[in-house]
Design a protein around this nucleic acid. Sequence first.
RNA 1: CGGGAUGUGGCGCAGUUGGCUAGCACACCACGUUAGGGAUGUGAGGGUCGUCUGUUCGAGUCAGAUCAUCCCGACCA
Length: 492
Amino acid sequence: MAKEVTSRSENYSQWYSDLVVKADLAEQSAVRGCMVIKPYGYAIWEKMQSILDGMFKKTGVQNAYFPLFIPKSFFSREAEHVAGFAKECAVVTHHRLMNDPEGKGVIVDPEAKLEEELIVRPTSETIIWSVYKNWITSWRDLPILCNQWCNVVRWEMRTRPFLRTAEFLWQEGHTAHATAEEAEAKANEMVRVYADFARNVLALPVIVGHKSPNERFAGALDTLTIEAMMQDGKALQAGTSHFLGQNFAKSFDVQYTDKEGQQQYVWATSWGVSTRLMGALIMAHGDDNGLVLPPALAPIQVVMVPIFRTDEEHAAVIAKFEQIKKDLEALGHSVKIDDRDTLRPGFKFAEWELKGVPVRLAMGARDLQAGTVEIARRDTLEKETVNIEGVETYIDNLLVDIQKGIYDKAVKFRDDHVEKCDSWEEFKEKIQTGKFLLCHWDGTAETEQKIKDETKATIRCIPVDSYVCEEEGKDIYSGKPSHRRVVFAIAY
RNA sequence: CGGGAUGUGGCGCAGUUGGCUAGCACACCACGUUAGGGAUGUGAGGGUCGUCUGUUCGAGUCAGAUCAUCCCGACCA
């Protein structure tokens, strides 16, 4: 029987696409560059949402919702911001359809042309700041800490499931503060939330750092990022948090009266993560048998597959499963008994592996006799048979183990693929083999651009927690003096 | 938008220099035997070949146009 998933070694990108489809996460939709997220894939996204949302709320952030459509004129207020998005927007020009008088089908009613076009949001800064203007008049109104879960549309020229789709789901937080310090602290706090989430829930060992000016968000003074490494050694920007300074406040004239009675512009941040996190998860942990979900994220943590010949055996196994299920649920775990009687056990094993369920139990006549159950862990594919007594405690511990195992494996992989590099010749060669290279950089956009032109590698970040390397040296390309190393990699 | 490629049942493909009722594997449906790692036998159903126009006695096959998709760039979370 042929493998469902193409081997990674052949073509990583093909492997990834196959995995997305075969694991029942998503499929291509009829709309260019968009995808249909299927129930199983969406359950994973929902879980991400609920965990993240809880983390946001602990920092005082509240959810809100702003319109999908943004009047075109809003975009003309922040020049730098628009430069970053104008090229890739979907624009609504009409509001009505009509029957084609010439023949079949419907056409856009030319009478229904909008006076002002509406832009389908590529991000909501402009509309949110036009609203914030009315919300903020006094220092007592600050800070404003809002987040919205929504979809956005960017008419990308090239799309890829979960990593870059024309429409994607995300959350975008937008905050307004009285002082620069407070805003910067918030941007920093939120990137920490992302890093914690990535490491503890997604088991992704991300690198936290600042973006170089070239790679910054349009309109930001500083962009913080979490950068993850995929199994082909390429980088994926998994989340960003921006310190926007007073750019948006000035463009949208958002001022407050301070305690001294002076008019002041507010300071802003924005931060977001998207369904791209799903892509990160798949590419970082998946193997040739399919998805590997960390227990903290898995919508189903334990799946149970009964093996039986007769109705009596079936009933006995299911009864045992029900008991274990109850015990596991009492410990807060999500469990599924796969009681489909039309499929053979081997098929179910393969299917649940494809879907990445962390722990699988199998029980048949043999086990009923012996009072045991077979436990398989998805991350290592190891199987063992344990006594049914106290199995819930065993699984409880096993899930913790698996979570740690997946993370540790990813950390090891990353550490094995990060190295210092001080020779330009070596750089050109090694960067193509899927490595993060820690190199000196003279801090100029020119050098960064030249390196990008010659090798496609970009500065992923100037790290602030892992791989921090403050030391004197010479720029790898220009030879000019440098005070620290930065992370170079080829990115998705 | 530049370079390359592809459109044939649900998915993946074959279909030669135009020729007869468009084929294969998988999936689907029915029945039987099976069930500890993606079972198997028999039978059944489903496509008008992306779209339009042309050439021809005859077009999935040739020509033109058009639409769509994919890959490689530029752009980007």
